[in-house]
Design a protein around this nucleic acid. Sequence first.
DNA 1: GGCAGGAATGTAACCGCTGGCAACATAGGG
DNA 2: CCCTATGTTGCCAGCGGTTACATTCCTGCC
Lengths: 317, 317
Amino acid sequence: MARSIIRLKDIADRTGFSVNTVSLALRESSRIPEDTRLVIRQAAQAMNYQPNHIARSLVSRETKTIGLVLTDITNPILTHTAQAIELALAERGYSTLFATSNNDLEEEIKVVEMFRSRQVDGMLIYPRNHRQLDHIRRLRASHYPVVLLVGDPDAGIDAVSVDERRGAYKATRHLIETGHTKIGLLDSANPLGNREKRDGYQQAFAEIGLGVDPSLAVDPQGHTVIKGFWAMDTLMNGRIRPTGLVAANDSLAIGALRWCQKNNLRVPEDMAIIGFDNIEFAEHAATPITSVNYPVAMVTDLAVDRLMRLIGAGDDF
Amino acid sequence: MARSIIRLKDIADRTGFSVNTVSLALRESSRIPEDTRLVIRQAAQAMNYQPNHIARSLVSRETKTIGLVLTDITNPILTHTAQAIELALAERGYSTLFATSNNDLEEEIKVVEMFRSRQVDGMLIYPRNHRQLDHIRRLRASHYPVVLLVGDPDAGIDAVSVDERRGAYKATRHLIETGHTKIGLLDSANPLGNREKRDGYQQAFAEIGLGVDPSLAVDPQGHTVIKGFWAMDTLMNGRIRPTGLVAANDSLAIGALRWCQKNNLRVPEDMAIIGFDNIEFAEHAATPITSVNYPVAMVTDLAVDRLMRLIGAGDDF
DNA sequence: GGCAGGAATGTAACCGCTGGCAACATAGGG
DNA sequence: CCCTATGTTGCCAGCGGTTACATTCCTGCC
């Protein structure tokens, strides 16, 4: 029996119809009478026929495939996002082609090109950098359906995003309101990178007429627990010793928490920590960490919907 | 300036050469002299040409795409695996088409069919169930390159896997050697499912001439922290109160740890916990949890290598 | 009985690219 | 000056499927 891939031609030969008739029958065209359709359908089933998606794509000019670009999937929140997106797309009959940019702009560009070469019908991108979107903007300009999973609404690209600035603002504000004035910030400070959280943090201080001491912001150079631990170490050995902390994500927050435990600081009495994303591990950490929620389901649904709309609109948008 | 996808024909028209010449030139064929190649390459660049991977696949009969099937990506260890695989495949020029089975056999079958329809060159599968592999075996029988990411080596399918039975055995053995005799087990007990860990657990007891009390094994019905918490609750309110615990993964272990903290049990003095997979969050939990390591890098490298070998071998294996 | 009309099916072209082979040109040897 | 060798390039078919159009064959009506 072997594999020897079954084509329409094979079914045609076996049933005595032409390739065309078989093609139409299998797609339930009303041009083919029910009897014929049945015969053909049965033959197809018996031969375990699987339509060649590649060939179909070539003529239909759509691959029913979406490219998903993430920076790095080890961040639990991106993980959830990836899964939710895959699910949402599958429900709509799309497959997910997946690639990581490894937080490298060159790679991100390469990946996007590769997706284009593979004729994906659209892309969902979690960009490495909120400030270097030219290559994506170029795509968008040539009417390629692209939706960013983060980013300012004013980047000139469709984006569905959590308002990170506002989240950071509210977190900081909360700490200020509970009496803290010296509040540390753990955030990857790539000057060209994500400034949203930092902006929100500063805004909260500005509002009460205070500036921000730069020594209170430490760049953990990553977003793992261990990076958080050492960033906290740096922060606490700095010029000013904070009593509160805003961490850009929960992994960092857990690392900071761990540092506190090791150094006999009580949380939240001696050190109030707020994380981002509200992942399960943070919620159930030794001391539950307050966290700014990242509404995965909402973000992904919005993003997928938006993308579908762009694809549906064709070239006229 | 519009998308209006550029084809070889467009470059041919612009340079005055034929489609064929352009095709050869862009693939650096030695049949085309350097001068011509240069002209064509420049034109292609200027027009921002991207080869149509779909069309190429149709004739070359390979898509340079691998299908990756996971049950559920929220398990951190699968996450790491997914990323490592994507990376390893990308290095070898392959793209990753990704889908989750949601732990449902029907869906797993559907996903596999879909991948076949999309002509993926091979598949990497983390099966829902170690005992229902017939559909995969069928694929394999028709010479389709497939490698499982877990499973007994004797399943009749290529598999690269951690020896889970041995891991569980060693974990249990370790607890026994440190004086524990009442050891709980938190593992999803689907009778048709993964029995490896349970087998290892039982083996360790059998070796010292002891049976296993069934009330010591609790099915958490999932693998999240919260499930672990409640399973621990059930276990500790059972007939026998254990002093040690083997949890099938680290999320469950963290949940159990959390239960101990809430109920004023010291870890590891009052309750020794061993998890599986050695994820970062466990390592940095309130009390670091001992964990059986899951060598992601090794597993993925082996799996990808194996798959590449199968693909390379063509039909004659 | 001849012809219109519609149902059932077949034919041909094409999607963008690749591979085999033919064709043309130029140059070198006889 | 012709013929072959070599180097360059073009033509055609085909991958598996879809689409527009053509054909066949029956039925029914005047």
